[in-house]
Amino acid sequence: MAFDLEHHQVPTNGIMLHVVQCGLPAGPLVVLLHGFPEFWYGWRHQIPALAAAGFRVWAPDQRGYNLSSKPPRVADYTIDTLGADILGLLEAAGREKATVIGHDWGAAVAWWLAAHHPERLRRVAILNVPHPAVLRQALRQMPRQLLKSWYIFFFQLPWLPEKLFRRRQFRFGRGALRGTSRPGTFTSEDLHRYTEAWAQPGTLTGMLNWYRAAFRRHRLGKQAMKNISIPVRILWGKQDAFLEPELAQLSLPLCEQGELLYFGDATHWLHQEEPAAVNMLLLEFMQADKPASAV
């Protein structure tokens, strides 16, 4: 069964998030969290598949991105605040629990939710981002990862990253997507959609402020170091240009019910390169939540 994409502005945590919704209103809620430099469209291959399986899918533009609110301060983008945005979406949906699936920065928010509010989640699926404790340690002790993370330090500069990103019709952003993915992953139409999102007023600073807030203010507390008690499935493209594949394996001991599946030929953008396989693994992982009457 095919469902239309519904575009809504949803109030949460003192701001408004643009949320694409799809599927049966009464279906189990799945929240899809994109990363940098994407927006809800990054889940275009997953939204219809999950909706057709009987789930109610919410895919927000997270704060600072595309059509969502873009608070001006770096302090408005701490991980606690980003997590509170998603808890507010659960309240707006009238749901006690949801499954959260995150990629890149969206996966970092999913890790935070799993560590701090496991009572609100059924399970989490993580795409190509390690547990925050593992990443923090890797940046201190793994030279290869520190080298791959050079851009994090560049993004701390004021205005210059925005200027570079905006030059020549967002050539930097388009080149980053195509240059770190398998050929054909991002079509010209896809990149047009991305440049439209990046051109929204305040978006470049909003999405870069995620990195600035993490660098300046994030402190890994004891609660974040605790094991994740709810079921976790980690999917990881081994050809990731930004993160070492062993970080996924190092994250498993911090998950009491953790699973890891590698994609040997996929990159950081595995859900767009291998949509059929990723969708199958996500649906298999959520089988216990699927309604009996689902197609």
Rank of each mutant, 00 (worst) to 15 (best):
S251D: 07
H45Y: 14
I86W: 01
S229Q: 05
A241F: 04
G184R: 03
V100T: 09
P132M: 06
G202E: 10
A26W: 05
L17M: 15
N227C: 02
P28L: 09
P37F: 10
A224K: 03
K226C: 07
S293Q: 15
H34T: 14
E246H: 05
H117T: 11
E162M: 04
A108S: 13
G173W: 09
L177W: 14
R217Y: 13
M16I: 13
R216C: 09
I230D: 07
R216H: 11
A107P: 11
A288W: 10
F55E: 14
F39V: 10
L146R: 12
E246V: 00
Q239E: 12
A138C: 04
R63I: 11
W40E: 10
D104S: 08
R56L: 09
N128D: 10
N279Y: 12
F36V: 10
R174F: 02
R233Q: 08
T267D: 07
G88Y: 02
R120G: 07
D4Y: 03
L204R: 11
A248Q: 01
N227E: 15
R140T: 05
F215C: 08
Q287S: 08
L260Y: 02
H34K: 11
L17Q: 13
R178S: 03
G175N: 14
N13H: 06
A197P: 10
E189Q: 12
I101F: 04
W198E: 04
F55I: 15
L89W: 08
S149P: 07
A26S: 13
E96Q: 05
M286A: 07
V100A: 01
R182I: 04
S188M: 01
A276T: 13
L243F: 13
P60N: 06
S188L: 03
R216K: 13
G106C: 03
P118K: 02
E119W: 06
Q137K: 13
L113Y: 04
L90W: 03
V278F: 07
L164T: 13
A197Y: 13
A176F: 08
G94Y: 08
V124I: 15
E119T: 08
H7S: 06
L139M: 10
L250P: 01
F39L: 11
G184V: 05
Q156Y: 02
A52M: 03
N66A: 06
R63V: 08
G106A: 04
Q223V: 11
Q21I: 07
F172L: 15
D240V: 00
S293M: 12
M286K: 09
E256Y: 00
L139H: 03
Y151R: 10
R95C: 00
G264D: 15
A125R: 02
V109R: 05
E244L: 05
L87Q: 08
L5V: 10
F155I: 14
H192M: 00
N279K: 08
R219Y: 01
P245F: 03
P11K: 14
A213S: 15
V30D: 11
D61E: 15
R122K: 06
V100N: 04
Q21L: 10
I79S: 01
P231S: 05
K148D: 11
F186G: 01
A125T: 14
A133F: 03
Y151G: 06
G184A: 02
T267N: 05
R182S: 06
I86F: 02
L204F: 06
L33T: 14
Y262I: 01
Q9M: 12
L220Q: 09
G202T: 07
P275G: 10
D265E: 15
E96C: 03
P48C: 10
V295Y: 07
F263T: 12
